[in-house]
Simulated scan of single mutants.
Amino acid sequence: MTDSDPDADPALELRSRRRIYQHVRDNPGIHFRALLEALEYAQGTLQYHLRWLETHGLLEKSDDGKYTRYYPAEEFDETDQAVMNALRREYARRIVAHLAVDGALSTADLSDRLERAPSTVSWHLSKLEDADLVTKERQGRSVEYELRDPERVQYLYTIHRRTFTDRVVDRLFDLWDSY
């Protein structure tokens, strides 16, 4: 593959592979079902081409615990993939946005902001903690969560903002930009 133009790679001579590869490049972290809906290929055909692109070093996959997500090879390190995996899930994205904008928050604070049960918020926080995206610290009787690298989160969100259709999070990050 040439460094300057991956699309010139002979591995992408098939229109279907080029189309799949380009869609993943345009929507890094997209999961299989979303690709299936967007591209309207038969499931087996899409699986075959994704596996082929991965075997030939053009795509990488990441398992976020619920979905297998796809990334252009060598463009996202493991930490960036973990951030993008979280940003691709609605409530994880909203939790991350609140932590990025407001700093450390408790489960109760996040539950109030998201208007979700504390158990739901806690589940998402544990997944974010497992992905090493948040840290938790005991503050008296409560536990507060904080993003490990808020600048990285904001950078990735800003770069790929158009692929996240979430006006709530857009408003939060716009507030952060105005500080």
Rank of each mutant, 00 (worst) to 15 (best):
E115I: 02
H98V: 01
E146Y: 02
V83D: 02
N85T: 01
Y91Q: 09
V24E: 08
Q47Y: 13
D130I: 01
I20A: 06
L87H: 06
E90G: 01
I20F: 02
L59R: 09
L35Y: 11
Q22W: 07
P28Q: 12
Y67S: 01
A104T: 09
G65S: 00
T107C: 07
E151Q: 14
D64T: 01
E144Q: 13
T68V: 10
D9P: 02
L147C: 11
H124N: 07
Y70T: 04
Y41R: 04
Q22F: 01
A8R: 15
P10R: 08
I30F: 08
V101D: 14
D149T: 12
L39S: 09
R69Q: 10
E13N: 12
A8E: 13
E137D: 14
V24K: 10
H98T: 00
T68M: 06
E151A: 15
H31N: 13
A42R: 15
D132T: 09
T55H: 14
Y48K: 15
A11M: 05
D112V: 09
R141K: 15
R51L: 13
D109V: 04
E137R: 15
L58C: 05
E74L: 10
A82G: 02
Q22H: 12
R94M: 08
L125R: 07
V101M: 12
F76A: 08
Y71Q: 04
T79F: 11
L39I: 10
E90P: 00
E90C: 00
A82W: 00
